[in-house]
């Protein structure tokens, strides 16, 4: 069981209190009806599901109940950072080599 740092509770809490909530930083258009079928498909259906560092949403469901964002390496299953919804996607220092390798 992982420990996950909740950016609202400001401490690490057991994974049992959390739920995963899919890929992060997917913007719902304010003009949703204007999207082409292709654009809608990318918004709703397509996900990166990458091997390596991935940005995803979690919810501290059985804690403060807040959604938040996280960067997690899906190979090592380690969280690199967690941050509040609305905060910019952090720039992480990841060696590109390693990342390429992980993504291949």
């Amino acid at each position: 069981m992982l420990l996950i740092h909740c950016p609202h509770c400001n401490e690490e809490r057991p994974e049992l209190e959390f739920s995963h909530a899919g890929e992060a930083h997917i913007v719902r258009s304010t003009q949703l009806t204007e999207l082409s079928d292709e654009e809608f498909a990318h918004f709703f259906f397509y996900r990166e599901n990458r091997k390596g560092v991935t940005f995803e949403r979690w919810r501290h469901t059985h804690g403060c109940a807040r959604f938040f964002n996280a960067a997690r390496d899906t190979v090592s299953d380690k969280f690199l950072i967690t941050y509040k919804i609305g905060e910019p996607k952090p720039k992480l220092k990841i060696s590109t080599n390693q990342n390429k390798k992980a993504a291949s």
Binding site: R13, P14, L16, E17, H62, G63, C64, A65
Partner: peptide
């Protein structure tokens, strides 16, 4: 105080 898990419930 904290909301948390107790066995299979919140």
């Amino acid at each position: 105080c904290s909301r948390t898990i107790l066995g299979k419930i919140e």
